[in-house]
Amino acid sequence: MSGNTNASLFEFLLRQGDNTLVLGQRLSEWCGHGPVLEEDIALANIALDLVGQTQLWLALACEVEGTGRSADDLAMLRDVWDFRNLLLVEQPNRDFGMTILRQFLFDQWHLLQLHALAESSEDRVAAIATKAEREVRYHVERSSEAVIALGDGTEESHGRMQGALDRLTPYIGEMFEADAVDAALVRDGVAPEPARLKPAYDSAVAAVLSEATLSMPSVPVAQTGGRSGKRHTEHLGHMLTQMQWLQRAYPGAEW
């Protein structure tokens, strides 16, 4: 592999691992605070699935980088500007409806992406995607059913879900954005062109929203900057201060 291809693959793996890391951390903030015991455990399970996937993506990133950094180093010792996650996943939990809707918008994309990555020309990427796809298939089922139940629920729950959709829709566009990194990966058959997933995403999301009696607002401009690292929202830094404080305060601390 050329140095350039390696750098693109590393960047791609960071995007993968940072998406699941940041969303896994966000979900784990619910642990012990869920509206009912059953949801609390379900959210914690999904958070653990995502953190498990993070370990695989970031470990491979380190292997590709080859400088001796570990997945833990990447997760705990990078600052905001080095994170490559979508802006969507760093948005705060706010209420349960917002958490579920964020999850739904991500899960639908995540499943399509992993399904395509399972056919990757890079065997190590295909192996992680195949394993993760099984977990995410369940995440999609769970978040979709919850969106339908709450959207088509009471006046209160419907209002909150529509509010969440209005607030989070501007972050959808970033999933389908492409840059030079993507071009290199598409050329090598490592990853699908992001825009190729959009028709399937739009129709899957529309089907659930229609059953949930929710309507997608029209958004003139998408909020982007997370996956490129150009500009994260203010929320990520606050989240990292919580997630990373132990390694920052006690460098090298282990269990």
């Binding site: 015991l37 369940y138 059913e145």
Partner: peptide
């Protein structure tokens, strides 16, 4: 036992609570 609004959700909750 557990609480759920309907049978399908009960199956999903059981999956998360009892088969992890």
């Amino acid at each position: 036992s557990l609480h759920a609004p309907d049978a399908e959700t009960a199956v999903r909750n059981a999956r998360d609570v009892y088969t992890r």
